[in-house]
C-alpha cells in the first residue's frame, strides 16, 4: 500500500540532469581547492568562488566544469548514467560558495588561518562527493533547519 503525502517541495517536477556531471565537477573542484590550499593563492579560490556562484545561482549544469563534462567527457562514456534532481548539487554549490567567500575575505583581511580552515572544509565536502558520492544536502540541510528554528 502506498500513501503519498500532499503537495510538498519534494514532489514538484524537478529539473533532471546526468548525475555524473556534478560528480565530475566535484573531482575538478577537489583539485582546484587542493591547489588553493597548497599554494595559499587567494586568486585560485576567487576563481573557484565564481564557478560556485554560477552553480549556486544558475545551476550546476551551467558551470565551466559541467561544460567540460558535456563536451569532452560525456561523449566518451558508453552507457547513459543515473540522473538526479539539480537541487541537491545546487545546494552543495551554495555551501561551497559560502566557504570560498569566507576564505577569500579571510585572506584579503590577512587571516591565513581562516583561509586554510574554510578551504579545508570546502575540500573535504568536494572530495567526499567525488570519492564517496557524499550527499551534502542530505547530511546538513535538516541539521541547519533544526538549528535555525530552535
Amino acid at each position: 500500500m502506498v500513501q503519498n503525502t500532499n503537495n510538498s517541495k519534494i514532489k514538484v517536477t524537478p529539473i533532471i540532469i546526468d548525475a555524473r556531471g556534478p560528480r565530475f565537477g566535484a573531482v575538478i573542484t577537489s583539485i582546484v581547492l587542493a591547489t588553493a590550499l597548497a599554494t595559499n593563492n587567494v586568486w585560485v579560490i576567487v576563481a573557484q568562488a565564481i564557478v560556485f556562484a554560477i552553480g549556486a545561482i544558475k545551476g550546476p549544469q551551467f558551470t565551466p566544469y559541467a561544460f567540460i563534462f558535456k563536451s569532452l567527457v560525456k561523449p566518451r562514456l558508453k552507457k547513459s548514467g543515473a540522473t538526479e534532481d539539480v537541487r541537491p548539487p545546487q545546494f552543495a554549490q551554495t555551501v561551497g560558495l559560502l566557504f570560498a567567500l569566507t576564505a577569500a575575505v579571510g585572506s584579503f583581511a590577512g587571516l591565513e588561518l581562516v583561509f586554510t580552515i574554510a578551504v579545508g572544509f570546502a575540500l573535504a565536502a568536494a572530495f567526499l562527493n567525488a570519492a564517496f558520492n557524499f550527499c551534502l544536502g542530505c547530511e546538513i540541510y535538516l541539521l541547519l533547519l533544526r538549528a535555525r528554528s530552535k
Binding site: M1, V2, N4, T5, S8, K9, Y141, L142, L143, L145
Partner: peptide
C-alpha cells in the same frame, strides 16, 4: 504494509521529536 513519505522540512516538530538528522 503501508508506505508514507514525509517532507522533513514541513514537519520540523516531528523531525525533532523522532530525532531525524538526515535524509
Amino acid at each position: 504494509v503501508k508506505y508514507v513519505e514525509i517532507d522533513a522540512e514541513e514537519q520540523l516538530e516531528l523531525v525533532r521529536t523522532l530525532d531525524i538528522r538526515s535524509t
